[in-house]
Every structure is written in structure tokens, then in C-alpha cells.
Amino acid sequence: MTRKGLFVASLVAMTALLAGLSSLLLWQSPAQAAEALAGGGLDPVVMRWGFVAAALATGISSLGAAYAVAAVGTAAVGALAEKPELFGRAIILVGLAEGIAIYGVIVSVLILNRLG
């Protein structure tokens, strides 16, 4: 199996694991759902999908950032091997790729604030 194929397989496995864990952790029992509705809270179905959306926003953006950092990082290391004075430019590009994950976390926080 090639490196790219292995990377794609691990990406799919991590996404499936994230989806499985989030679905196991978020389903409430009917008694808890009735108690939440009686307490004046949001509909449990809305809360459930809000939590799924927040988890997916963080998870998918983190996977995208990991892919971007891998691509930019390897190119940056190759460029630094030939011209060490490019370190400042290379670290800025890697930082921009990391920003993708931070945007996902910000979106998750905004979603969770709307639910609370």
C-alpha cells in the first residue's frame, strides 16, 4: 500500500471512530429526554444534533489542518534543507495551515454557546 493510500485509510478510520464515539455519547435515554423537556430546556433532538455539529466542526477541521500541515511541513523542510534563511517564511505557512483547526474550534464554541 502506498503512503497516500495509507494516509487516506487512516483518515477514514479516524472519521469513523469520531462518528461512532459521538453517536454513543450523545444519545439520551427517553427518561432523560422527558426530564429535559419538563425543565424548560431545549428539545433533546436539537441538543443532540447541536453536539454532533460541534464535534464534526472540530473533528473535520482538525483533520483538514493535519493534512495541510503535513503537506506544507514536508515542503518547508525540503526548502530549509537547501536554503536555511527561509525558516521565517516556512513557519508562517505552517502556522496558517494550523489556523484551520482553530477556526473549527471557534465554530464549535459558537454552536455550543447557542445550545446553552
Rank of each mutant, 00 (worst) to 15 (best):
L56V: 14
G78S: 05
L86H: 11
L25A: 09
L42C: 10
P84W: 01
A71L: 09
L42T: 07
P30I: 09
K83L: 02
A66K: 00
A38G: 10
W49A: 06
L56S: 14
A31G: 12
L63C: 08
A34G: 04
A54P: 11
V45N: 15
D43G: 01
E35M: 13
F51E: 14
S62W: 00
G59L: 02
V45I: 12
V77K: 08
Q28M: 12
P30R: 10
A71W: 01
E85N: 10
A70R: 15
M47E: 14
L26P: 14
E35V: 12
Y67F: 12
W49C: 05
A81W: 11
R48S: 06
S22P: 05
A53E: 06
G73N: 03
L56K: 10
A71G: 09
L80Y: 03
E82C: 08
A76G: 06
V52N: 13
A70G: 15
A65M: 08
V77T: 14
L24S: 07
A33M: 13
S22K: 05
E82L: 07
A65D: 03
F87A: 06
A57Q: 05
A36Q: 13
L80E: 03
A66V: 07
L63K: 01
A70T: 15
A70W: 04
A53W: 00
A70L: 14
A76N: 07
V69S: 03
A31L: 06
S61D: 02
W49Y: 05
S62I: 07
L24M: 08
L86P: 12
A34D: 08
L25N: 13
A65V: 13
L25T: 11
P30Q: 12
V69D: 03
V69A: 04
A34Y: 11
V69Q: 01
E35G: 11
A79F: 12
G20H: 01
A55R: 08
P84K: 02
D43A: 03
L21Y: 01
V77L: 06
V52P: 11
P44D: 10
G39E: 07
S62F: 01
G50V: 05
G59Y: 00
A68I: 13
G64Q: 08
A79V: 10
P44C: 04
